[in-house]
Design a protein around this nucleic acid. Structure first.
Lengths: 173, 173
DNA sequence: GATATTGATTATAGCGTATAACGATTTTGA
DNA sequence: TCAAAATCGTTATACGCTATAATCAATATC
């Protein structure tokens, strides 16, 4: 029996008592939020033993693949305000995973991973593959790829190019 | 060469300078996060004139569709900690949109929308339809439905049922 | 009727995010 | 060349969202 509206049993009122979610059941934003929280929770659980957050992994990954970037470049790429990036890179440096080195432009630093940072990143990449597999398990690789495609199709226009109020919409299929 | 990794032009270093995102480009979590932020931003923009947040809309909607629920039931349904729900419902009550009324169980309140709350909710529902249309415009109704289905298929198992570490995975397609 | 549980609340702490302002440095353009 | 503007990293700060523990009143349990 596939109920269309999402419903939950209320632990409190033991009788009947299910909650009608109305249009929330058809809301992309609500579904995205729930999915994102669930996936991030899985990520955090997977990475908990190494004490690495999603944001930290993304920073290590970007520095590892783009050695020598300055802070602004990394933070811009990851949509992190440069002011908030300071504490992030501080923590990674304190743990001996990344380092700020002098750049030709003396206002900035060139960021690199340390040997230990590169080594950890390899572990993290492997863990991340495990995490992605776990997440994809419920829908399978094919649907996972579909989902990725749909998400970037959804994100790109909202993110960068403004949506014109006057533009025809709804028949993009 | 079609670069597989997502890349961004660096505004700073004018030459070359694109950022390699590596496995982030194929990460469901990262894609979900970006999509969710983009969609929520669109929501906030759409609802800004009425000063209603996504959380507030969800509360009004659930109370409107389930009059008489107690705070715990609403907050549980929306995955809001009951402690944090207090300020939320306080604000709605202060604005004259919802009200706490005496319940038979005198520890709790029965929540209802006021007349003004019901009226606003109608406006919000209309606005929400506009918002959803705007969001769906980039991918069309068909793909929007696909996306919703994929998201709930992804969320449900991670959310409720634990994923067994020993279970076979990856070939669910 | 003593004890445990529930519902709402307060206080508090943490994290993520946002802005403004600052000092040092580099770039610019008159 | 030199003053003004822009850039880079940083600090301070504030807001929102989330999480936990503790409290009080009321109810349920046995």
């Amino acid at each position: 029996m596939t109920r269309k509206g999402r419903r939950l049993a209320a632990d409190a009122g033991d009788t009947s008592a299910e909650v009608d979610f109305g249009q929330l059941s058809q809301s992309l934003g609500y579904a995205l939020r729930r999915a994102q929280l669930a996936v991030f929770k899985n990520f955090r659980d997977t990475f908990a033993s190494l004490d690495v957050t999603p944001a930290q992994y993304s920073v290590l990954l970007v520095i590892g693949r783009n050695p020598g970037l300055k802070q602004t470049q990394v933070s811009d790429a990851l949509n992190i305000k440069r002011a908030n990036f300071v504490a992030l890179i501080d923590a990674l440096e304190r743990r001996g995973l990344a380092e700020r080195t002098a750049a030709t432009d003396r206002r900035s630093y060139a960021l690199y991973l340390t040997a230990s940072g590169r080594k950890l990143l390899k572990t993290l990449d492997a863990l991340n593959a495990v995490h992605e597999d776990k997440v994809a398990a419920s829908i399978g690789q094919e649907r996972r790829a579909q989902l990725l495609a749909l998400l970037s199709a959804l994100t790109a226009p909202l993110d960068g190019g403004e949506i014109d109020d006057e533009s025809e919409m709804g028949t993009a299929g």
